[in-house]
Design a binder for these strands. Structure first.
Lengths: 139, 139
DNA sequence: CCGGTGAGTTAGACAAAGTCCAATTCTTGT
DNA sequence: ACAAGAATTGGACTTTGTCTAACTCACCGG
């Protein structure tokens, strides 16, 4: 996903293109994700969506994120021991993770090569290869 | 950590070697970790340690794991969205993660090469590079 | 229009992992 | 053996996420 939909209509089209019925709540959630193209967790998304008027419940935020994940509209980043981050960038790329601040930064995939991975057992497919470089302030 | 300490005395020595005062509870926890050389989460460790006689509290298990982590006796694996796994193997290696079963398998590091990572900003050091290959049953 | 149907949403109770604290118990150095 | 500091403890608490049963909404046929 590398174009940026600016209007709710564009977001609605994006959802339709992924087989997702565009509802008010889903549009708002997707809008927030694609507006700030950042790594957000469910909590932050919940807060951002409801910033003006409370309109979307916690349950819907979780339901919707799971749906988006399933439909490959976003990616899940499991990197922080206490919460999952959602990444609106589904093209292959990797991450720096600052252990001190919890901050996540993208590493473009084109420069990085991972070689020598062993073959997978039969009947099993790779869903993706995540490279996470954990960093911290020099001591 | 690639030798396997079989006795509590050997475990105690291992702890001392890492600047950890060996207490009963810490020895039991380390013993469990190094006996089964598996990826265990706090819950499982708590259960294993208390399997015979309840002797170690939940708080101590968490305290101790954090201490072990700090002293580089174990490694933390953040791969499952709901819990942290602890890996008694601190030598460089990577992991397969089966999304369906939650199972973790080691990938020896010597075969794998990660190339082309961008330089780190000044004042920041890499703590480690984790490669996680997410797999699932072919559909 | 209007009422029915099924998908989507909701509040709030619940569950699981992990943290925190003040009181107690252990380890260690002398 | 003892004092002092370190480690441990139960239990309450927090946070992230799940579940459910009721409700709402968009849409379709008549």
């Amino acid at each position: 996903m590398n174009f940026q939909p600016y209007t709710r209509e564009a977001v609605a089209d994006l959802l339709r293109g992924h087989d997702i019925t565009p509802t008010h709540q889903r549009i708002e959630i997707a809008f927030v994700l694609f507006e700030k193209r950042e790594h957000l967790c469910a909590d932050q998304i919940f807060a951002l969506v409801n910033a003006r008027h409370a309109e979307t419940s916690k349950a819907t935020v979780y339901n919707t994120l799971k749906l988006f994940l399933d439909k490959r509209l976003v990616r899940e980043l499991i990197v922080d021991p206490s919460k999952v981050f959602y990444d609106p960038n589904t093209t292959p790329h990797h991450h720096f993770y600052d252990v001190d601040s919890g901050e996540l930064t993208d590493i473009p995939a084109d420069s990085v090569r991972v070689e020598g991975l062993p073959a997978l057992p039969p009947g099993v497919v790779a869903e993706g290869v995540d490279v996470i470089v954990r960093t911290r302030r020099a001591s």
